[in-house]
Amino acid sequence: MGTIKKEVFLGRRDAYNSKLEYLAKMAQEEPWTFKSIAQEDPYRILRNYFQFTYDRLYEEKKIMFSDDQDFSCINTGLLTKYDRDIIAIFSRSQDDKLLPWRLVGFYHDGEKYFKERFSATPEMADYFTDVSEIIYDKKIQIDLNIEHIIDDNIGRFQQAGYGDKQLIHALMRAAIEQIKKKLSRNFKLAAPFYYHNTETGERKIQLLIPLYFPGAPVRLALVLDKVKYPQREPYYMAITVLPIEWAYMNARLIVKPDPEWTKIIEEIGAGGGEIEFA
């Protein structure tokens, strides 16, 4: 499968960041990085969003080409403050030794530069066919195998500041009861996540819910997988936990998360190194 890193020269770091800065100012306001890395990496969330959106559009064959094939474009899925579609435009490389395309920049769908090269607005990325897949259903039970989750993810709990398994067990029990109450009043707190296993080809929507441990900022999110079997009621299987930064960036691919998520990420920051998608 083609990816933006294999297809497009995005520019040197400073030049690419300048384009992302322009995109962030053009788009409707939302957080595009984490506070603790704002100076050294001011567009981490936006960069991941844009690059993974390109990869999904490539997969869906929704990249649009100009009549002369010298330019291509994608719909970023973002809107301007005046609700215009924001388009990323690429120009074809003239050197066979370079990547096939280079990022020109970002334009809204009414700008002359875009309209001179393309006759229609490209389609947005799609991640689901049934809207019920992305909406938490409070009538469905959550099957929580706490011991399995803790044993398989003890490293992530330790990174979040929790090392004692008995304490984690108690905190998880309390957090689940609290999140059920929150979800019964605000189902949008369960953020949809597009899961794609590149080894098996499996694709599905999962839900991410923040874990509120008493007296501490939210550091982890629980991943819920909706399980359906013939002749029995569906249920949510809690399968793993993710660092809250990973969870937010995964969720942002599909929709802008609920404002409660914005509050959560404003309380924490990402650690050093590159955040990767799980």
Rank of each mutant, 00 (worst) to 15 (best):
S119Q: 15
A88C: 07
Y43F: 14
I244G: 05
V104D: 09
E267D: 06
I89K: 04
R56Q: 10
T53M: 11
T262W: 01
K228S: 12
F128Y: 14
L99Q: 06
D137H: 14
Y16S: 04
D164R: 07
P100W: 00
D95G: 06
S72D: 03
Y82K: 15
E123Y: 07
L207D: 04
E266G: 12
Y212N: 10
S132H: 15
F52G: 00
K35P: 02
P31H: 14
K81D: 13
D85P: 02
E267Y: 00
W246P: 00
E276H: 13
F277L: 14
E266I: 02
Q94V: 15
F106I: 00
K139I: 03
G105C: 01
T121F: 02
A216C: 12
T240C: 08
E245V: 01
L189M: 10
L208F: 06
V241N: 08
A191Q: 13
M249N: 15
T129G: 08
M172P: 03
P210I: 05
E177L: 15
I146M: 03
D68T: 04
E123K: 13
A270P: 02
I135W: 10
F193M: 11
I146Y: 00
G110D: 13
Y107R: 09
N48L: 03
A175K: 05
M172R: 01
G271F: 01
K6D: 14
G11V: 05
S132G: 11
E21Q: 08
E177Y: 09
T121A: 03
Y58V: 07
I45E: 05
D130K: 07
G2T: 12
K138L: 08
I179M: 12
I205S: 13
N250H: 15
I268P: 00
V255M: 11
K256V: 13
I154N: 15
R173H: 12
I244R: 02
A174F: 03
S66R: 03
Y194H: 07
Q231E: 15
L57E: 06
R12H: 10
M26H: 08
I149A: 09
K19F: 01
G201I: 14
D109I: 01
P210Y: 04
D96T: 09
G271Y: 03
Y54A: 09
V255H: 12
K97Q: 08
I74A: 13
K61C: 09
T129H: 11
G271R: 04
P100T: 01
A125D: 05
G163E: 00
K228A: 04
L20E: 02
D126S: 11
F90T: 07
S132N: 15
Y194A: 11
I264K: 00
Y127W: 05
P214I: 14
L20G: 04
M172E: 06
P214F: 14
N17I: 00
H148I: 10
I179G: 11
A190K: 09
K138V: 10
P257Y: 01
D152S: 15
V241M: 06
N48I: 00
G161C: 02
R92N: 07
W261T: 01
E40C: 05
Y113G: 02
I45R: 04
Y22V: 10
A278D: 15
T121G: 03
I45S: 06
A270T: 07
R117P: 08
Y16A: 07
